[in-house]
Design a protein around this nucleic acid. Structure first.
Lengths: 101, 101
DNA sequence: AAAACATATTGACAATCATGAATGTAAGGA
DNA sequence: TCCTTACATTCATGATTGTCAATATGTTTT
């Protein structure tokens, strides 16, 4: 099994600014300008993080004339949690003992 | 609120090799040598990943004479899942609308 | 004490990443 | 058409990361 996709998914959660963005968006659809107001980062940096969040599928964007609104993709978060559950559950295989006696 | 600790926690899940290690350990206490046998990485690289996993608190190590055995710290995984739940749940604050009209 | 084995640390390197200044693009208003 | 606003992209830079060879440390065996 290859874990590349899941590793990529968790990269969305590896940056404090992205975690704060997710937390803000979790309260409801949020405009870029509100995020920019609350985070102490530049506009290009915010744009960079939003691209990562959208590419990872965790966040969905919607354009309304000049503005862009973001929402959480709850399905993907559920997938992340389900993956963590599956990952940490014994998969039937008995734990192989140390190779050397 | 500061998300530095949580961002650090998720870094444990950001590498495919570490995800595979976690998956292997989830079947039961596992020796370094077994991990080294199953992963296609060098011994120093494995040691590096185990250090990250232990420092993040997700994995616990135990020495038995020459060998070191690893187990998952299930509590920490539960914390991670609980954090994801809290993060993606509306925190009461109504979503602030776009600053500009 | 010496050799063999298991794991950790150091050092070097290439790759990725977060950041912001400058610039580009798209949309609305004058 | 020009100007302003909102966001994206490009580019450069410093920091972090994953990797392995070489070496060190700790443990058991001979």
């Amino acid at each position: 099994m290859n874990y590349a996709l899941q590793a990529r998914m968790f990269k969305a959660f590896c940056d404090e600014n992205r975690l704060q963005i997710i937390d803000l968006i979790s309260d409801g659809e949020t405009c870029s300008c509100v995020l920019l107001e609350k985070l102490e980062i530049s506009q290009p940096t915010l744009s960079h993080h939003m691209k990562i969040l959208c590419d990872s599928g965790m966040v969905i964007s919607r354009r309304d004339s000049k503005w862009i609104y973001y929402t959480l993709n709850q399905e993907r978060f559920d997938e992340a949690k389900a993956f963590l559950d599956a990952l940490t559950t014994a998969s039937g295989e008995p734990p192989k003992k140390c190779v050397n006696t």
